[in-house]
Design a protein around this nucleic acid. Structure first.
Lengths: 105, 105
DNA sequence: GTAAATATGTTTGCGCTGCAAAGTTGTTTG
DNA sequence: CAAACAACTTTGCAGCGCAAACATATTTAC
């Protein structure tokens, strides 16, 4: 490396706040592995309330990070979530960013 | 009443928001390694503005995570930051929490 | 010698956001 | 039929991070 690099703010990496928020980070982390989980299951898995899961889900959907499919199953609503390609990319890049800040695990 | 662990919400881990905030995460990550850095240097290192660094520094200090030492050096104010023992512990436990959510790197 | 620029921070104003609580819609049960 | 349940959505507000404004002391320019 050259000394012409005045400062190297390797910590100046920007983390995607949409992913960074703990509730959403948990969701995306899980969806990254399983490729599909339903609303009710995710509540028990993440410890979120229905209200909060609903709100975060909407944000992630609006951002294009997850796909939300609603259907009627056994006469009841049923909601399935899954990561989109953009969501996978966003998660991977978030992971890289955080690793850069925190260091190797 | 007695509860059996039917579900293991390994994602239900709580992240310390004081550490989680990107600006503070960067600060603590760096201080974890070097054990002492001054205000001006940290600005270039983290990409924060003076105002934001000042605010986050105050929060971390109030939380007991860092120690802030102010002196006059060459007729100018000089501020040194360093992690406290509590800060080190908090950072380590944050790291463990995030690893549990995101997975192994 | 004083006005302007520089250095090192702190404080303030406010827009955004996450969370708990309340609301919605439909179904089952007694 | 009413009350309880299931699966969500919407709302209200407190708290927070950020940019901008402010504070204070020193050095430089003229």
């Amino acid at each position: 490396m050259k000394s012409e690099d005045k400062k190297q703010p390797d910590l100046a990496v920007e983390l995607d706040r949409l992913v960074h928020e703990p509730a959403r980070l948990k969701l995306m982390s899980y969806l990254y592995l399983v490729e599909g989980a339903d609303f009710v299951f995710l509540i028990s898995r993440t410890g979120l309330t229905m209200g909060n899961l609903s709100a975060h889900m909407s944000k992630l959907e609006k951002a294009g990070y997850i796909k939300v499919e609603k259907e009627i199953l056994n006469n009841r609503p049923h909601t399935m979530l899954s990561l989109t390609a953009a969501g996978r990319t966003a998660f991977e890049s978030y992971r890289a960013g955080i690793e850069q800040i925190i260091g190797k695990f």
